[in-house]
Write a protein that binds this DNA or RNA. Structure first.
Length: 421
RNA sequence: GCCCCCAUCGACUAGCGGCCUAGGUCACGGCCCUUUCAAGGCCGUAGCGCGGGUUCGAAUCCCGCUGGGGGCACCA
């Protein structure tokens, strides 16, 4: 039988990156096994529901490429089934009425033991299990009833969820057993922490998929990074495409200890994935990102500059500060120009005569100039770079000049010469 | 307080009794390349929490301790 898994967030706030990783593990497992991945919104607590949350969850999963099978399910829609289950348990003596609510009778001896697919054998003493409310006095089902019944009704074979659910598992096991339903395999994935060892939160940096997206991360990189947070393929493989992850993922290699989210490694990985993109795709990605970010610059120039920045920036968000000079003049700090008046004037002269105004010819002319002035390339090009890009750090100088065009380049040199003098 | 889980470089991890002089990746340091910044190449610093066992042999198995996390609702 093909496995069926589900990701079951509650719509009580923004979907957190830790939850996204849980979703990813479910998805990878399903796709690897040729099974199905369901999305169920656990909205039984209407009082805590955050309106926007359901959309945000779906947007996040879609952007990451975690497609689910079938329609989104809402737990609340199963209300009648949950009530029936509670009534059945009541009728068969597994539950009893208590102040208008229906409570499940938990065993108070022995232990509940299950083989967790990630953590191994877990044993939970039954005496610690309280008789839990199945149906509230107002008739609404509680989480443990609804979750257990839904998993069974959806024929979920593997419940892969966060480890905060470990204490719920024995409860759900007893409910399912009393109902005479089949038990799924449980797999509890460890937490994700921030660098201070505390739960990852806003103060550590981005925590929602949309924030990462806005910060210029791309989906394959985030997926790759998240997969590596608690799972490994072998002792040396780090960079993996979405297809490779699907092909290689398995629950057996998910670790059982919590992991710390490392923004620096994510950034590195993002750079790796960005560099691996074919030039056209990279340009496309950059243009789309900048448009969404509200960057003010013409598409043609962005596309033309894409190859100049591809190996230089690790997130798309770095583009404006790195290549912004292509769209507007940036005044260079005086110290970068000091004493370079003559050099800049000679460079202007050289560039005025370059024909055609292309990177290769420009390079030839400027190198000849440097040689003539007996300057090392770095000494000669530094001030020119500053004059044209406004910074000490920039894409390749010759390519940048070409992109800017002769007229604009000369104008910027003129301005710098005036300042340097 | 009680219950459950976890424990290898700063971080992510490989390791499932001898292959370990503990491997890979990020970060960090150095060198090379180089028009800046990157990218790339080479080299390096750095780790099995502690104490007992078991065994010819332990990072690997067992016990205790310590530390960390999670959970103890008519929340999910």
């Amino acid at each position: 039988m093909n496995p069926r898994v589900r990701f079951a967030p509650s719509p009580t706030g923004l979907l957190h990156i830790g939850g996204v990783r849980t979703a990813l593990f479910n998805w990878l497992f399903a796709r690897h096994e040729g099974g199905e991945f369901l999305l169920r919104i656990e909205n039984t607590d209407t009082s805590r529901e955050v309106e926007e949350s359901v959309d945000q969850i779906q947007r996040s999963l879609r952007w990451l490429g975690l497609d689910w099978d079938g329609e989104v399910e809402f737990q609340l829609d199963g209300l009648e089934r949950h009530r029936e289950a509670a009534q059945k348990l009541l009728a068969e003596g597994h539950a009893y009425e208590d102040e208008g609510a229906i409570r499940f009778r938990m065993p108070d001896e022995g232990a509940t033991v299950w083989e967790d697919a990630i953590k191994g054998t877990i044993s939970y003493p039954n005496e610690k299990l309280e008789d839990l409310v199945l149906l509230r006095s107002d008739g609404r089902p509680t989480y443990n009833l609804a979750a257990a019944v839904d998993d069974a009704d959806s024929r979920i074979t593997h419940v892969i969820r966060g480890e905060d659910h470990v204490p719920n598992t024995p409860k759900q096991i007893h409910i399912l057993e009393a109902l005479g339903r089949e038990l799924p395999v449980y797999a509890h994935v460890p937490n994700v922490f921030g660098t201070d060892g505390r739960k990852l939160s806003k103060r550590h940096g981005a925590v929602s998929v949309e924030e990462f997206r806005a910060e210029g991360y791309v989906a394959p990189a985030l997926m790759n990074y998240l997969a590596l947070l608690g799972w490994s393929y072998d002792d040396r493989t780090t960079v993996m495409s979405r297809d490779e992850l699907v092909e290689r993922f398995g629950l057996e290699r998910v670790g059982s200890s919590p992991a710390t989210f490392d923004y620096e490694k994510l950034m590195w990985l993002n750079g790796v994935h960005l560099r691996e993109l074919p030039a056209e795709v990279y340009a496309e990605t950059l243009v789309a990102y900048l448009a969404e970010a509200g960057f003010d610059g013409d598409e043609e120039t962005i596309r033309a500059s894409a190859p100049l920045v591809q190996t230089k920036i690790a997130t798309l968000a770095e583009y404006p500060s790195f290549a912004g000079f292509l769209f507007r003049r940036v005044a260079p700090p005086h110290e970068l120009l000091d004493g370079a008046g003559d050099l800049l004037a000679r460079a202007r002269e050289a560039l005025a005569g370059v024909e055609p105004f292309t990177a290769a010819v420009i390079e030839e002319a400027l190198r000849a100039l440097a040689e003539e002035l007996e300057l090392k390339p770095r000494q000669a090009f530094g001030p020119i770079r500053a004059a044209v890009t406004g910074s000490r750090i920039s894409p390749g100088l010759f390519e940048s000049l070409e992109l800017l065009g002769r007229e604009e380049s000369l104008a910027r040199l003129d301005a710098a010469i005036a300042v340097a003098a």
